[in-house]
């Protein structure tokens, strides 16, 4: 509902300010097309890599590797695969979240922790690649480590807030 209202507000204000709304709209849309053109290679490259990693069992391997650290933090093992997949694939993480809901129930501890995790994190690797890929920047400096540190914070918080009460 918020989206149509926002669009209407922008349009009405534009008309009020005597902006040629449709002409300006198409002008902006062309710029959008150019941006899209720039991110096609980035998205294709990244998604192929993520799909390959999932199909090969690489995600499962990462989960096994992350397990000792997760145990140490009291992070439930049901949620580990989702936490590992979350930074690289939004749709993949949602599929795993639904799987947790169906297997353990939405109101179980695992279900709640997974919910908080899904709501408070974003697809970090995807965002970093797409945003920097769109302008052709290869040296992203400290972006990825900091982004992943933020994800880790959200993981820890989800366990602290749900797991221990």
């Amino acid at each position: 509902m918020i989206m149509p209202v926002g669009v209407v507000l922008i349009l009405v204000y534009g008309l009020y300010k005597k902006v040629k709304v449709f002409e300006v709209f198409t002008e902006g849309a062309v710029e959008g097309l150019h941006t899209l053109y720039m991110i096609i290679p980035t998205i294709t490259g990244l998604i192929v890599a993520v799909e390959m990693l999932r199909a090969s069992g690489g995600i499962d391997l990462l989960c096994t590797l992350a397990q000792p650290a997760a145990d140490l933090l009291g992070f439930p093992k049901e949620v580990v695969p989702m936490a590992v997949l979350r930074p690289v694939s939004g749709s993949g993480a949602t599929a795993l979240l639904v799987d947790i809901f169906e297997r353990y129930g939405t109101d179980s501890a695992a279900g709640k922790i997974a919910s908080v995790l899904a709501g408070s994190t974003d697809t970090t690797v995807y965002a970093v690649t797409v945003y920097f890929g769109s302008v052709g920047i290869t040296n992203t400096r400290h972006t990825l480590p900091v982004g992943l540190a933020a994800d880790l914070t959200a993981f820890l918080m989800s366990v602290l807030l749900i797991g221990y009460n």
Binding site: I10, L11, G14, K17, G28, A29
Partner: peptide, 23 residues
């Protein structure tokens, strides 16, 4: 990309209106 296509083209256009009108 097809999913993104509509959103990016549409919102880039809307944003231009917001920009030109001073919003």
């Amino acid at each position: 990309l097809i999913k993104l296509f509509g959103a990016v083209v549409f919102w880039s256009g809307i944003m231009k209106i917001a920009e030109k009108s001073g919003l």
